[in-house]
């Protein structure tokens, strides 16, 4: 979200692999959530200018917990939970050479902050990857804002990029498609006949928790398992349609379930990687007899909707 307020420097994972000599993982645990990320792209991969792989890269991990990723780090910045914003501010201050009047910020000794910033400054090509730990902790998209500002500051000294670690395989694809069609990347409200965008007002959770929406179509997600109780409670009260091949907590509270084929296994298609590179999905096995694809379902739905309007 914050990405739109200030913009951010991007590069592809291929570029990161070939060039980056300093990697920061902030609030993410790629060893578990994106197991091949470090091997294929970010850390261990041998790139054109980084042919020694891991030995050519410095790894900094910012995480309040000890994880399998922090174990592999050169520096683990173990901040106190929910202090991401403070830490990023301190990093910016350190970068500009301000003296701290305290011994530690956000639970991190100031020496560590200076040391990390010196490493960042002297890198040739830094790359910051951030995950849910940043967007889900206190401050939310403001944390991303400040991380972007940090990266912008760093670009005064060296080349530095930033990339969100996408969870589901085609999160980015939806952002691309809906931006292309409506002008906004998510949380778009079209109820007035023109697109409006105001996160905090127009996102799924907002309209559910306030009990405003009177019908929900859930597409291959499981809000029934991940949304706050108040939102789920409202979902049990309104007509709910699920398009999902699986039984999930959300299908349990729905009125209609429409199963579809699996993209990338039973049907081909296009998906956008976390760095915005579109890739073609392959069909490797046949769809079970009689099952429709997502595309079939939505095209038929569009036809019906147009007949009714």
């Amino acid at each position: 979200m914050a990405l739109q307020e200030v913009g951010y420097p991007v590069c592809t994972l291929g570029e990161a692999k070939n060039r980056s000599d300093l990697v920061i993982f902030w609030g993410c645990n790629p060893i578990h959530a994106h197991p091949r990320h470090m091997g294929r792209y970010s850390v261990y991969a041998r790139g054109f200018f980084r042919d020694r792989g891991r030995n050519d890269r410095t790894v900094i991990v910012v995480d309040p917990r000890k994880t399998d990723t922090t174990k592999l780090a050169d520096i683990h910045i173990q901040l106190e939970p929910h202090k991401d914003y403070e830490l990023a501010c301190a990093m910016r201050a350190a970068l500009r050479g301000y003296e701290f009047e305290v011994d530690s910020v956000a639970g991190v000794p100031v020496e560590t902050i200076y040391e990390a910033m010196d490493l960042c400054k002297s890198a040739q090509f830094g790359q910051l990857y951030f995950g849910m730990g940043v967007t889900m902790s206190k401050g939310r998209h403001r944390n991303v804002d400040i991380a972007i500002s940090l990266v912008i500051d760093l670009n005064a000294y060296t080349k530095f990029g930033l990339m969100p670690m996408r969870g589901h395989y085609n999160v980015n694809g939806f952002n691309q498609v809906v931006t292309w069609l409506t002008g906004y990347p998510f949380g778009v409200d079209l109820t007035r006949g023109y697109p409006r965008y105001n996160p905090g007002e127009t996102c799924a959770n907002d309209v559910l928790q306030r009990g405003e929406t009177d019908m929900m179509l859930n597409i291959a997600a499981d809000p029934g398992a991940h949304f706050p109780q108040k939102a789920i409670k409202h979902m049990t009260k309104i007509p709910l349609v699920c398009i999902d091949p699986h039984q999930t907590p959300t299908t349990e509270i729905s009125n209609i379930v429409i199963p579809t084929s699996f993209s990338g296994l039973e049907t081909g298609g296009t998906a956008y990687r976390m760095d915005g590179v579109p890739l073609e999905l392959k069909k490797i096995i046949d769809v079970p007899e009689g099952v429709w694809t997502d595309k079939d379902v939505f095209e038929y739905m569009l036809k019906k909707v147009r007949e009714m309007l």
Binding site: Q176, V177, L181, T202, T270, A271, D294, V305
Partner: peptide, 30 residues
């Protein structure tokens, strides 16, 4: 005020058709 939510585990062609449904009925897409 219909809400269409999810979209992250389907391919772009399906997303395209789905977003068009949302535009036509005047939904919230997230």
């Amino acid at each position: 005020l219909p809400l269409m939510y999810g979209f992250s585990s389907i391919d772009c062609n399906a997303q395209h058709a789905a977003v068009n449904v949302g535009i036509d009925v005047g939904a919230i897409l997230d």
